[in-house]
Simulated assay, not measured.
Amino acid sequence: MTTSVLILEDDLQLVRLFRHILCHEGFELIHCKAVSLAKSLVHQLRFELALVDVVLGPDDNGLDFVRYAREVRPEMGIMVISGKSTTMDRIIGIQMGADDYLPKPLDMRELVVRAKRLIQRLQAHSPSGSELLVQFSGFVLDKKRRTLCTSEGEFIGLTSREFDLLVCLTESGNRVIGRDVIASLVCGRSWSALDRSVDVMVSGLRCKLRKFHPSEILIKSVRGQGYCFGSVVEPILWTQRV
């Protein structure tokens, strides 16, 4: 089965290289050069992955698309590919909603590996159980559509990893989850004592939840062990949705 990929890139030579390499790896590509068209495409079609350049022209910025796509297609993987490669550039890209950030010039082998791992991780966290819709502390978590919103219907933009982390925590039954487990389940890699990426990811998710519940600690730190969820999670039955 092919994987549908949207490419937002104005470098046509690079796009031709994408087609040459990625099509042989089982990817089906749709290319556009403008943010407005990319927004229209993700609104109408379903993509597993988007490859997004940041600098597209004097009036276009790929991060504008990243922010929009994360809202309307939270289940889609987003990889930023850009010549802007400072630490701050990468941080901003991730904060906007990107799952990964690759600097140019690209190593196509690395791009293929990262793209496949991202898609595999998203598919692995796609729920198949009965409790696909749950609620906690005034939030509604839809695991099928991969969305989080308030009980009033206001959507909260999460990155794919933040969403997977939240699912992991809400399914823990208030048990403590170690950083090594989170790194394995959410990031797909091993964890070391010097690795702060899990803590950074937890901090980002906390900030987004705290905007709506500033007085409630939903993700609790357990010193020397990891994290646990601090709210009661309840399934939403179909009768409650009518």
Score class of each variant (00 low, 15 high):
Met1Ala: 05
Leu6His: 03
Leu8Trp: 14
Leu8Gly: 08
Asp11Arg: 00
Phe18Arg: 13
Glu28Arg: 11
Lys33Tyr: 02
Lys33Trp: 01
Val35Pro: 02
Leu41Asp: 01
Glu48Asp: 12
Glu48Lys: 02
Val54Phe: 01
Pro58Lys: 15
Asp60Leu: 14
Gly62Ala: 01
Asp64Trp: 01
Val66Lys: 04
Arg67Ala: 04
Glu71Lys: 12
Val72Phe: 02
Arg73His: 04
Arg73Thr: 02
Met76Tyr: 00
Gly77Arg: 07
Gly77Trp: 09
Val80Ser: 06
Arg90Ser: 12
Ile91Ala: 06
Ala98Ser: 13
Tyr101Cys: 10
Arg109Gln: 13
Arg114Lys: 10
Leu118Lys: 14
Gln123Glu: 05
Ser126Tyr: 14
Ser128Lys: 15
Gly129Cys: 08
Leu133Asn: 11
Val134Asp: 10
Val140Arg: 03
Arg145Thr: 05
Arg146Asn: 12
Thr147Asp: 05
Cys149Arg: 15
Glu152Ile: 12
Gly153Phe: 08
Phe155Trp: 10
Phe155Ala: 07
Ile156Ser: 04
Leu158Phe: 00
Asp164Leu: 02
Asn174Thr: 14
Val176Leu: 13
Ile177Pro: 12
Ala183Asp: 13
Ser184Val: 10
Cys187Phe: 14
Ser190Gln: 10
Arg196Val: 05
Ser197His: 04
Met201Cys: 06
Cys207Trp: 02
Arg210Asn: 03
Ser215Tyr: 00
Glu216Pro: 07
Ile217Phe: 09
Leu218Arg: 01
Ile219Asn: 07
Tyr227Val: 01
Gly230Ser: 07
Val233Phe: 01
Ile236Lys: 00
Leu237Thr: 15
Thr239Asp: 10
Gln240Val: 08
